[in-house]
């Protein structure tokens, strides 16, 4: 007896749960030759609002966890991803085509990216922070602190690695993220969400929306409760308008860049704010 395959409907990832889009909309995901793969949820304005609410609720707890603990959670994500490498490779192949070795290499790079950023969790503050030289009977210390809720438009031409390379540096310092995944590759994004959901990452720290970035991003850009906007993958959108909308509510903006962003410390510190504290010197 032949067995019919069950086409999966991929849902959103908001607040640690996997809801359907509030709008009820889905869109078909196709492979490189136009063959049908699955349905994915098409996130709406209200889904983006719900995701920001979830991120805002999760952020204080996440930044309150010790840096060591955050690092351990990120390592664990890498472990879980490693365990499901086969599935991710298959999904990348299905969505993008190409050679199997290249797809496997992308999954390996994604795992490595998690590990690389996990290592920075309890180190970036020492490198990016400073004891400042001041002329006076006191000293000041500057330390980077997470910005808060970060909205991210993931690189649109990468199935998995691009998303990992924008989400990992944002959460390592204690931000909570609302990520808009690549429209053409939502399967890898939601499978990554399944990994995150089982990796001790507190619910709401990462929220993943699938659908058209052109529809979702404007609501995130103008949202007053979003503290930073990472437009890395928004190069093909009207990103200047997004930047203008973000400026209205004093949102920090990172402009688009092509391709998959490299692993850099700068990506972590770009989504932090410097806090400087003053301390009197001992008189003896």
């Amino acid at each position: 007896m032949t067995r019919l395959s069950v086409p999966k409907t991929y849902k959103l990832y908001i607040g640690g749960a996997f809801p359907r889009s509030e709008s009820g909309r889905t869109y078909p995901v196709t492979g490189p030759k136009g063959e049908f793969l699955a349905h994915a949820a098409s996130a709406s304005r209200k889904d983006s609002r719900d995701a920001v609410v979830a991120a805002r609720a999760a952020q204080p707890g996440w930044v309150g966890a010790s840096a060591y603990n955050r690092g351990q959670v990120l390592y664990r994500i890498a472990e879980m991803l490693e365990g499901r490498a086969q599935q991710f490779t298959d999904e990348i192949l299905a969505q993008r085509g190409g050679r199997r070795t290249l797809a496997a290499a992308e999954v390996e790079s994604a795992i490595d990216a998690w590990v690389w950023y996990a290592g920075w969790a309890d180190k970036y503050a020492q490198v990016a922070g400073n004891a400042n030289p001041v002329a006076g009977p006191y000293f000041t210390l500057s330390t980077p602190e997470p910005t808060g809720v970060v909205a991210v438009v993931a690189p649109q031409d990468s199935a998995l690695l691009g998303l990992v390379c924008v989400v990992a540096p944002a959460i390592v310092s204690g931000n909570a993220v609302v990520a808009v995944a690549a429209e053409s590759a939502p399967l890898s994004a939601i499978s990554l969400a399944e990994v995150l959901a089982t990796s001790d990452l507190p619910p709401g720290v990462v929220n993943i929306l699938t659908g058209a970035p052109a529809q979702i991003a404007p609501w995130l850009a103008s949202h007053a409760d979003v503290n930073a906007l990472d437009l890395t993958g928004a190069g093909s959108l009207e990103w200047v308008d997004l930047e203008v909308a973000a400026a209205e509510t004093l949102t920090r903006v990172r402009r688009p860049e092509p391709g998959v962003p490299p692993l850099t410390l700068e990506r972590i510190t770009a989504l932090t704010e410097v806090k400087t504290v003053w301390h009197p010197k001992s008189t003896r």
């Binding site: 609002r49 805002r56 103008s222 007053a224 409760d225 909308a245 209205e248």
Partner: peptide, 9 residues
Amino acid sequence: SGHYSGADY
């Protein structure tokens, strides 16, 4: 305003 507000406001 037409855009979402936040607790800071």
